[in-house]
Design a protein around this nucleic acid. Structure first.
Lengths: 259, 259
DNA sequence: CTCGTTCATGACCCGGCGGTCATTGACCTG
DNA sequence: CAGGTCAATGACCGCCGGGTCATGAACGAG
């Protein structure tokens, strides 16, 4: 009947807690600091949450849920395309096959763009998952996700190898470590970034670089792979209409901090 | 005069502390657990160290010192080669230039092999620096090193771009994030690894992959870059005599843990 | 206005751990 | 063997911070 609870309290506590977790980690954060930051008392905290960990669990669950959604979606799309390719492999012209393979790359890039947006919106939580959750139930969760992703990327590349759309002399997991590693580094950098970098351009550049390699002369080799039986198009201009993907705002793409 | 100190105590304490730090982080580790693990009392700890942090500082200083030595050595060698190249750029034949550029890659790979050995020997310390030092003076140290490395690699690639030995349409720092990111991921994986993976093969494969890209057909393009004035050789068989670098023991190269 | 309900407070309790120090006894010297 | 030194011990102290709960006050219903 009486005394309606402050409707902003829960949100205020969550925000303050996130900031405090970033600063001191989950174990290092003091509940009194969190409540003081939003003008409440320690007791008020326990009206809304059972513990620091419970609060963070809420936050992290929202993130992982969204993450899982994105991942399922991307797997659904890519696997569909792979099945499609495998089924009609003999019937499709080389050019058609190449076009489908390119669609895989586009899907991956687009999915990664969405992923990076999510990273940006939750960069504080990610920071905590990476560096600030020792001794809690969340310890290791980030790196388990990393392992999963390394594996997923590896699986994808294995499929592409089977289709002759990817060099077969590289262990698939190496692609995973490479790609995911880059994402780990930016994810960590986002935590310190002042302004939001152009994440989409970054993702496009990255995929293109991995695909084509660092050596110059990538614009000239239209030579076919043996696996795809003279597909050719994959190597040429692979990602999107791709135009200015790489080398759009070079400085902004990976923000540095400190001198 | 009397009662000589146990000569093994310091080492035993350090070892036990490292294990405990990995398990619980620096703040989470209890001094009594450390001393109990080597059959000593809490007081004994303070005979040898001022605090947990002081102990870990010793350990970490040894590692960073070695790291710095390796890095200085690699910079000295690579910069020397770059100066050499820049000075004699017009006088050298295209083939000679390409040969020098390839030497840069070899140097980098060899330096990375030594780096990975160091990672392996100190995988416990690295684990702590990554995940277990929140709230201590070591917080962020790992990621500062990562940033430095990203920058260093970026600088290298910038030099190579200037020489036409690296595609110029990629922001240099992107190479850094890519390469260093992969190292971060393995460094973390080493912490959980049961057996020592073939780190040298891994480093060779990685550099080669970044250089040549994932697309098939990398064996065929001998097309020249404009910067190096028809150098060509860089793209062909770039790293070492390279033979079986990639695809030697594919499963072992990036150890997985858990199912 | 009165009363009951729920929110909110912060003093308090308590367990855990870093760090200390009086005491013990192992070991060396003479 | 006696005396002296110093490594080693572990009981103890004090602080810190998570969690509780008696108390008070804000609010709505009647």
């Amino acid at each position: 009947m009486a005394r309606p609870a402050d409707p902003h309290a829960r949100f205020a506590l969550t925000s303050a807690a996130r900031a405090e977790f970033v600063k001191r980690g989950i174990r290092g954060a003091r509940i009194e600091d969190i409540t003081a930051a939003c003008g409440l008392s320690k007791g008020a905290f326990y009206l809304h949450f059972d513990s620091k960990e419970a609060l963070f669990r809420d936050v992290v669950t929202a993130l992982t849920g969204e993450l899982e959604r994105l991942t399922e979606e991307r797997i659904r799309l890519v696997e569909g395309l792979f099945r499609d390719l495998a089924r009609s492999r003999s019937r499709l012209s080389a050019a058609d096959q190449a076009e489908r393979v390119e669609r895989v790359f586009c899907l991956e890039v687009e999915a990664d763009e969405r992923l990076l947006e999510l990273f940006w919106d939750n960069r504080d939580v990610i920071e905590v998952l990476i560096s600030g959750c020792q001794g809690t139930e969340f310890e290791g969760q980030f790196w388990r996700m990393v392992d999963r992703e390394v594996h997923r990327v590896g699986h994808n590349m294995e499929c592409l190898q089977g289709l002759g759309a990817c060099r077969p002399d590289v262990p698939p997991e190496l692609f995973g470590s490479l790609l995911v590693g880059a994402y780990v580094v930016v994810a960590k950098q986002l935590g310190k970034a002042k302004a939001k970098p152009d994440l989409a351009a970054w993702a496009r550049s990255l995929h293109r670089l991995i695909h084509e390699g660092a050596s110059p002369g990538h614009l000239t080799h239209a030579a076919p792979a043996e696996g795809l039986k003279a597909a050719g198009g994959v190597a040429a201009r692979p990602l999107r209409r791709s135009g200015g993907a790489i080398r759009r705002n070079p400085a902004r793409s990976s923000p540095r901090n400190r001198s």
